[in-house]
């Protein structure tokens, strides 16, 4: 252990300091930031800056600051009897979350498998929903898509027949025809057969 520094201590790197300030409970924020700065300064002098930064990030990314938030909340509401009675369900939820975090931290392998399983599940569901949304749920990208209908006839529809339908129709505001056709795609390599559409 080194003695106390004589001059001002090393300031904390700005990003971890900002994040720490964000997650710490306001009741203990200043003294913990002061302690974190003192610990960081000690670590820099004893073990070097890389080690000190690593320790600081571990402090920021651990769930301890959040846990402290819950502990401090319990301390604050204890003096307010009416508020604490109302808050009991929430305290119980926080207790459950604390317990869950503790168990998950101890069983890291199990946690990793659970997280990966959930991630794959969410990914698969998102992919399936994207297809369903695109094909079935999302309206067609036209103005008033609910007014578009598809009509067809068994015999081949020629251009002149389509023009005649368009002239005589009273039920539709417009008509257009589509047809699928097989095309040969040729170039430098082997020719390929492609299916295309004509509108």
């Amino acid at each position: 252990m080194t003695g106390p520094p004589t001059g001002p201590m090393q300031p904390l790197p700005s990003l971890p300091a900002f994040l720490l300030r964000l997650v710490l409970p306001h009741e203990y924020r200043d003294e913990i930031l002061g302690d974190a700065r003192e610990a960081y300064d000690n670590d820099v002098r004893e073990r070097g800056e890389a080690f000190a930064r690593n320790q600081l990030w571990r402090e920021v990314l651990s769930f301890r600051p959040l846990q402290l938030r819950w502990e401090a909340r319990g301390l604050r509401t204890r003096s307010r009897t009416a508020a604490s009675a109302r808050n009991k369900p929430m305290q119980s939820i926080f207790g459950d979350i604390r317990y869950a975090l503790r168990v998950l931290t101890k069983a890291r392998g199990y946690t990793a498998v659970a997280v990966i399983t959930i991630a794959l599940g969410v990914g698969a569901n998102t992919a399936i929903f994207s297809v369903i949304d695109g094909v079935l749920l999302r309206p067609l990208p036209y103005f008033e898509p609910e007014r578009i209908v598809r009509v067809w006839q068994e015999q081949t529809l020629t251009k002149s027949l389509l023009d005649r339908f368009e002239e005589q129709t009273r039920s539709f505001s417009g008509l257009s025809g589509t047809a699928t056709e097989t095309f040969s795609f040729t170039g430098d390599g082997e020719p390929e057969e492609l299916i295309g559409g004509i509108v």
Binding site: R58, E59, S62, R64, Q67, E71
Partner: peptide, 11 residues
């Protein structure tokens, strides 16, 4: 960590 120390001290 400093926060871990505080969690226990607050308790």
């Amino acid at each position: 960590s400093v926060s871990a120390v505080y969690v226990t001290l607050v308790r």
